[in-house]
Design a protein around this nucleic acid. Structure first.
Lengths: 202, 202
DNA sequence: TGTACATCAGTGAACGCGCGTTCACTGATGTAC
DNA sequence: TGTACATCAGTGAACGCGCGTTCACTGATGTAC
């Protein structure tokens, strides 16, 4: 039996679980189904994870990493030269990519934000820059300050203002009253909201 | 048996369900538990609701109504006289009340936004003014335009920008990286975010 | 006012489901001598 | 190189749980005559 002493079971389970998360969200990550799809008995996972939550937390981390990567990929497409316009453009693309990921991968997005008490985050008040989507936003806002597009005193609450705006927009589209908005309108409305943000920061 | 021909079972079930929603969110609204707490057999609900989703939708409507009421109550406390300042202040209190309700009543808030396909909303793209929290926001923004605090062309995307900001902020606090933020800091950070919004609109 | 009867709004038992988790186990692997 | 043995990483069966939903039922209510 090739599944016996699989050798690679932990990552294999995580990968399967991530697939389920993608298509079915947090509730779709069911231990027995993960085992089934990995071709292993339904309790084998307990050799590698204390319980379901531990597996889910791993998937959440993957979701966060994917979200960050999607944002980084998008940032790399900005070709603007002028430093301030460039920084401003990068900020906007950050937000666009965030929303786009959330809408393209709603299951993963939801799992990423469904982690119970994240042990790492529990200690700190505002999350310190730790990489991840928040770290990236932080970087981009720092760039904007450096380029002169944002005064240091307004830099303070900028992170949260930006994040709240795109996060809220994404969720209003996913589970809220903007559900039925056609994609084209969605982009337009998002752009207007990002304009407000842009104006509010400068 | 006083529960036999209860006479008032439907509203009684909804009320019990709302209580469960408050304390335990959508997953807490369990038909059998609702019946149990109402003192009625576990299948009696089927005389009044097609299924669990129908009951949950009713609770969601209550949640929305409560949210709106919390916002209206807060609006009534604004005493500012100068029309533009007044309108601006009212807009801010709208947002504060929204976030405050979400944090004070996370279960209800989540249920309010967890309704499956809301039949009413499915037809329209951007929800028309229908009362509810969105309708209230709409009114307040109209006031701001009337008071000269917001130009008509910037009025267009203002609804979504405002709603996304407070909705996102609330969710980052409830299920996101701002979970551990102490309440006092939370208010301060929200105020900064609302400042950005305010500046972006004017 | 009294009675027959239709209708309504509950009941109790059961179905079928799938879950997370635990138990004692066993086959595969690697290491010491 | 061969063997004994400890350890590791799986297995299969079972537990206990609670759910949503359906069924045939029955007690209570109201109405027509």
């Amino acid at each position: 039996m090739s599944t016996y002493h699989h050798g690679n079971l932990r990552p294999a389970l995580v990968e399967t679980a991530a697939g389920l998360a993608r298509t079915a969200g947090p509730d779709g990550v069911v231990l027995r189904e993960v085992a089934r799809q990995t071709g292993v008995s339904h309790n084998a996972a307990y050799r590698h994870f204390a319980d379901r939550d531990e597996l889910l937390a791993e998937v959440a981390a993957i979701g966060m990493a994917q979200l960050e990567q999607a944002m980084r990929d998008r940032l790399a497409t900005v070709r603007t030269r002028d430093p301030e316009r460039r920084a401003r453009r990068r900020l906007r693309e950050t937000g666009r990519a965030y929303v786009q990921f959330a809408l393209a991968e709603p299951g993963m997005f939801e799992v990423a934000f469904s982690a119970k008490g994240d042990a790492a985050a529990a200690g700190q008040h505002v999350p310190e820059v730790d990489g991840g989507p928040y770290g990236l936003l932080h970087e981009v806002l720092d760039e904007l300050v450096a380029a002169g597009g944002l005064s240091p005193e307004r830099r303070v609450g900028a992170d949260v203002a930006c994040w709240a705006a795109v996060h809220g927009f994404a969720l209003l589209c996913l589970r809220g009253p903007l559900q039925a908005l056609p994609p084209a309108d969605r982009d337009a409305v998002l752009d207007v909201a990002l304009d407000v943000l842009d104006r509010g920061l400068s």
